Simulated scan of single mutants.
Amino acid sequence: MVAAPVPVFDGHNDTLLKLELGAGTPRERSFLERAPRDHIDLPRARAGGFAGGLFAMYVPSRLGEDMNLRYDPQDPANFAEVQQPAALAFTLRMAARAFRLEREAAGDVSICRDVQAIRTAMDAGSLAMVLHVEGAEAIDPDFVALEVLHAAGLRSLGPVWSRSNIFGHGAPMTCPASPDSGPGLTDTGRELVRACNRLKIMIDLSHLTEKGFWDVASLSDRPLVASHSNAHAVCPSARNLTDRQLDAIAESGGLAGLNFHVAFLRPDGGHRSDTALDVMVRHMDHMIARLGEDGVALGSDFDGCLVPRAITDVAGLPVLLQAFRDAGYGEELIEKIAWKNWLSVLERTWA
C-alpha cells in the first residue's frame, strides 16, 4: 500500500517549455486541467503531493520541434549553439506564460521569490513555482538581461545545458563516459558566477563539464547545487557526478537532486521505461553516503525526460517515496528528500 502523499518540492522540470511548444498545436493543453500526456499539470500535481519546484526555462536548439529530440546524442543539430537574441525572446515567452498562469490560477499557483513565499504557498495549498534558467544563452555578456530577469523573479540559473555557449561548455549525454569531457568556464562564465552570487541567484551545476564544476566551486561563495544529477558510480553517464564532486558539494553544504531520467539511472545508460525503482534507491543510497541526509533531494526532470513506468508522471511521486520506505528510509529522511532539504539550501543561498 502507498502512503498518503508527502509534500514534494522538486528541483527541476521542463513544463513551461512543454506548454510553450504546445501552444497553437494539437498538443496544446491547459496546466489547470488534467491531461492524458506529459508529466505535470495541476490536478496530477495535487494527486501526487507535488507542492512546487524549480520550473526551468530552457531554449532548445531546434525551436518549434518536439523537445525530446534534444536527448538524441547522435544528432548534432539538437546541440547546436543558440544566439542570445533568439534565446532571450523565447525565455521571455516562457516567463510570460508563467506569469499568466499565476493570474489564471487565481491563487492555486504562486511564483515565489524567497523561501518564506514558498512556505506560505505550500501551507495554503498553492503550487510554489520558482523560475530557473537552464542554459544561459538568454543572458548577454553585460548581464543586462540577468538583472531584468532577476527583477522579474529569476532565482536559479544553470550556466550551460549540454552544449557550448559564451559562458562555458556542457557535458554530453553519453554513457559510459567521464564528466571530464571538455573545457570549463570561459572568462565571461566566471563573471556570470560572480554576478549570480551578487544577486543571490542559485548556480546550478547540472550539465556542466567536470572542469566547469570545479571552476564554479573555486569562485562561488554559495552552497554547490546540482539540481538534477545522479551518481556516476552507479550510472557512468557524463551527466552524472563523481564521488569527488559529491564530496565537494557536501563540504559546501550543498545539495544534489535525483534525476528520474532512465538513461541517467541505469548502469547501462539505456532508454527503457521498464527501469526498476530499485536503481533509483541505489543512486539515493550512494548519494546519501557521500552527501549526508541533508544533502539529497529530488530533481525529477519531469516533462523533459523518460521516467520509469512505475512513476509515469507527477501523480506517481508517492510510488517513489514508498520505494524509499521499503528500502528502510524513515519518515524524517523521506521528508528531507521530498522538500525540507531544498528549502534549506535555497534559504542559505538566497540569504
Rank of each mutant, 00 (worst) to 15 (best):
L343P: 00
D180C: 06
L92T: 05
D221R: 14
R194Q: 12
Q322W: 07
F55C: 05
G292P: 09
R222V: 04
D72H: 11
I139H: 00
R266N: 07
F167K: 03
E28A: 15
Y58L: 09
L32F: 12
H207T: 01
P176Q: 03
A87L: 07
L320F: 15
L343A: 04
F50G: 00
L219G: 06
V345P: 01
S178L: 06
A226V: 05
L192V: 00
R163D: 01
D108E: 15
A238C: 05
G48V: 03
R103N: 07
R290C: 10
Q74A: 15
R222E: 11
E251N: 07
D142S: 13
V144Q: 12
T174L: 12
A145V: 02
N341M: 06
D142C: 08
R29D: 07
L16N: 11
R93Q: 14
A276P: 02
A152E: 12
T120I: 02
L277N: 08
G270P: 03
E332S: 13
A195W: 08
A124G: 02
D247H: 13
T91Q: 07
G182C: 08
S110P: 00
L333H: 01
E65K: 12
P85Y: 11
R27G: 09
A177E: 12
V8C: 02
A89Q: 12
R113Y: 09
A195K: 15
P43N: 09
L101P: 10
T120W: 00
A310L: 13
R113G: 13
T91V: 09
G125M: 01
E102P: 02
R163N: 06
H261G: 03
A171N: 09
M287A: 10
A338G: 04
T174S: 06
W342S: 01
E293A: 09
S164L: 03
A95T: 12
D66L: 13
S218H: 14
V225G: 02
D243I: 01
M122L: 08
E65G: 08
P60T: 08
R113D: 07
P43E: 11
D114S: 07
L63K: 05
A47Y: 07
D313Q: 05
P36A: 12
S110F: 06
E251C: 00
G299Q: 04
R244I: 04
F90A: 04
Q84F: 00
F55P: 01
S178N: 06
P172T: 01
E20C: 14
K211R: 15
S220K: 10
T242Y: 04
E332F: 10
R155N: 02
P60H: 08
F50K: 01
L17T: 03
L127S: 05
L333V: 13
D123S: 14
V279N: 02
H232F: 03
